[in-house]
Simulated assay, not measured.
Amino acid sequence: MSLEIKNLSYAVDQFQFSEINLTITDETYFILLGPTGSGKSSLLKCILGINQIKTGEIFIDGKSIANLTVEKRNIGYLPQNCALFPHLDVQENINFGMRIRNYPETKIKERTGQLLSLFNIEHLANRSTRNLSGGEKQKVSLARALATRPALLLLDEPFSAVDEGTKKRLWFDLKKVFKTVKVPVIHVTHNFEEAYSMAEQIGIMVDGSLRQIADAQTLFERPATKKVAWFLNYRNFFSGEVKEENAGIYTINSHGINIVFTSKTELSGKISLCIRPQDIKIINPAYPVKAELADNVYEGIIRDMILYPESAIVFVKVDGSSSDDYDFELKFPLYILSRHNLHEQKRIKIALWQPNIIVFKD
């Protein structure tokens, strides 16, 4: 089974997206990740047939579905609110789609039993959906979406109404389910942990544009554009004219801060770079500086701090900088505060982990 989208465009009111191209093959679990309002749910509804596309083509297994009605596209869909039928019990919800398609009774009973077992909810078969927990409702909704053996499954923020503990357990349970169910999935979310834990491929959608598609590790470690990097919580952006010092070794000077980095491709003119807050390290004078840090060591003062239950954000203004506020944002586990006795106005030495500096050509 496969999905192919070619040059798809859509517009409503002030929002639009265009030239969306996407191919999902076999049983790929594809997550569409992006900020609220970026067009993720709108794209799902275009694939489903709820939204009318302006231009482009949508193919399932090589056959165009762009002009088919919703019910003829053979797509399973789970909206954000589950949309279970409150007047039906669990098994009646699951087999609803089969009944309106006039499946034989033996097939309905067999398929319903398979799905109750697959999702480990046999004990809920006769229970009213009003009396289900959030996690149970999600399992019933997914079972219903899979009941008619769709060619594609679309999940729109499937865990948004579930508490954190239940949510993470569902990730684990559903990964096992989808190893059994041979169907490609497009799963919309804005949750990074959810995407990283479940996806085989991730697409980043920002401002109505599909900016990057990659496996989770590549995408989170090597964002392709500044907008993708910003969405993925990269900070510490700098721009300047690049200067080659040696073969493959470059520098830029931004606001009086000199940054050394490497590149396998030849660079010239103005470029931008960034580094994640967690890739900036605090230097302990009692220990030698690692080679990956040695080219970008700075001294400065802590301007501000934000404390969370398990982590801390520290803002540092370095010596010689022409910026008005702070230059670097650091993030690390909370215990680092006490290890280095960190507090506002303390002078510290920091360094950039050079292999994780990301470069963008302006």
Rank of each mutant, 00 (worst) to 15 (best):
V162N: 00
G135A: 03
E193L: 07
K72Q: 14
L124Y: 08
L88I: 08
E164M: 09
V177R: 00
K175P: 11
E122G: 08
F85A: 15
E57Y: 06
V140M: 05
H187L: 06
L84H: 04
G165S: 15
E157N: 01
A151V: 04
K176M: 11
H123V: 10
N191H: 06
I108V: 15
L68R: 09
F192G: 04
T129W: 01
T148L: 14
K72N: 15
A83S: 15
L84Y: 00
L153H: 01
L84V: 08
Q91P: 05
L142V: 12
E57F: 04
T166R: 01
V188A: 03
G165N: 15
L68T: 14
L124M: 05
Y77K: 05
R99I: 11
H87R: 08
K72C: 10
E157F: 00
G113F: 12
V140D: 02
P86K: 05
Q91E: 09
T148P: 05
G113L: 14
K179P: 10
D163R: 06
P104E: 04
G165A: 14
R130T: 11
Y77A: 13
I121R: 00
R73L: 12
L118H: 04
R149G: 09
P158C: 02
L78R: 00
H187K: 04
R130S: 07
S117A: 12
K107E: 15
N120K: 08
Y103F: 15
K109P: 10
P150K: 01
F119S: 03
L142D: 09
R144S: 10
V90M: 04
V140L: 03
E110F: 12
D173W: 00
L142E: 08
L68G: 10
Y103A: 14
D156F: 02
P79K: 04
V183L: 01
T189E: 03
E194F: 03
K176V: 13
L116N: 07
I100Q: 08
T69M: 12
K176L: 10
D173Y: 01
V140A: 04
N74C: 11
D173H: 01
R73A: 12
T69S: 15
G76H: 02
I58C: 05
K63N: 14
E194A: 04
I121H: 01
K137A: 12
E105N: 14
N191I: 03
N120F: 04
S141P: 03
M98R: 08
G134K: 00
Y103S: 11
V183G: 01
V70Q: 10
G165T: 15
L132H: 03
V162Q: 00
R73I: 12
K137H: 09
F119A: 02
E164S: 10
L170D: 02
V177N: 03
I108L: 10
N74V: 07
E193I: 03
D89T: 14
N126I: 01
